[in-house]
Every structure is written in structure tokens, then in C-alpha cells.
């Protein structure tokens, strides 16, 4: 009778083993930018409560190239988050039915993108349209 000695392979570095995992880690890393941006915006709200000088100093600081680069990266991260979020949302939502017909995952994804563009357009219109 042969001896049993099951071998477990180590997991260290697992996310580098497959492009799918690498993209997953990229998706998860968007959270870092979401967090940092939210803290940055929280600070902006704080300056509003302090007064005009504090707010204008904050806005002036944001003109520094480091902040511009940070916000450009945060924008890219937020877009990647949105893209991946809309795509996996059908997996987390209860299956939708119109009558007896199942609404396809692709339809659910597309509807979210349409809402995203409409909502973004409204926000940009209100904020930048004057």
C-alpha cells in the first residue's frame, strides 16, 4: 500500500500567475485612489467650513502638478472601477425577469452605461455650465 503524502503548492505570488488575476488586482487597486480622493474631498469640505482663505489655499494647492497627476490617475481609476463594476453587477443582482423572459446580463450592463453617461453629463452640465 502506497503512503499518502499530499503536496500543497505555495500561494505566494499567486496574482502574477495569470493575466486574469493581474487585472483583478488592478481592479482592486482602484480602491486606493477612491479612498485617497474621498479623503481629499473631505478636506475640501473642511476648508469650506473654515472660510474663504482656507478654501482658496486648498484650490491653489490642487494646481500643483503632483495633485494634477494624482487626480488624472484617480479619474482613470474611477473609470476603470465603473467599467468593471457595471460588468460584474449582473452577477450580484437577483436575476431580472420581464414577464417570464429573463433580462440578459448584457442588457443590464448596457443600461448601467447609459445611466452613467446621462448622470455624468448632467453633473458636468450643472457644475461647468454656470
Amino acid at each position: 500500500m502506497a503512503t499518502r503524502r499530499p503536496y500543497m503548492r505555495p500561494m505566494a505570488g499567486w496574482w502574477r500567475r495569470n493575466p486574469f488575476y493581474l487585472f483583478y488586482m488592478l481592479r482592486e487597486s482602484t480602491a486606493v485612489f477612491v479612498t485617497l480622493y474621498a479623503l481629499q474631498l473631505l478636506y475640501g469640505v473642511y476648508t469650506l467650513t473654515v472660510g474663504q482663505a482656507a478654501f482658496e489655499a486648498w484650490l491653489a494647492r490642487l494646481q500643483h502638478p503632483v495633485y494634477i497627476v494624482f487626480h488624472a490617475l484617480a479619474l482613470a481609476a474611477a473609470l476603470l472601477h465603473a467599467f468593471t463594476w457595471f460588468n460584474v453587477a449582473p452577477k450580484a443582482m437577483p436575476a431580472l425577469y420581464l414577464g417570464t423572459r429573463r433580462v440578459s446580463d448584457r442588457t443590464v450592463v448596457r443600461v448601467q452605461f447609459v445611466i452613467f453617461f446621462v448622470v455624468s453629463a448632467i453633473m458636468l452640465g450643472v457644475a461647468l455650465g454656470g
Binding site: 495569470n18 486574469f20 488575476y21 483583478y24 482592486e28 460584474v88 449582473p90 452577477k91 450580484a92 443582482m93 437577483p94 436575476a95
Partner: peptide, 26 residues
């Protein structure tokens, strides 16, 4: 589960286990 989603990609029978797990989170 953190919804990596690779399970549903590799299934040879077109099962979507990721949706089973994540619908049950709801």
C-alpha cells in the same frame, strides 16, 4: 468570495458559479 470571477470564465459547462455566490451575498 471577492468576486474575482475567474470561476465562471473557466467552467466548461457554462455554469456561472460567481453569480451563485454573489446573488447569495444579497
Amino acid at each position: 468570495c471577492t468576486l474575482v470571477g475567474y470561476c465562471s470564465e473557466v467552467c466548461p459547462k457554462g455554469v456561472d458559479p460567481a453569480s451563485a455566490v454573489n446573488r447569495n451575498k444579497v
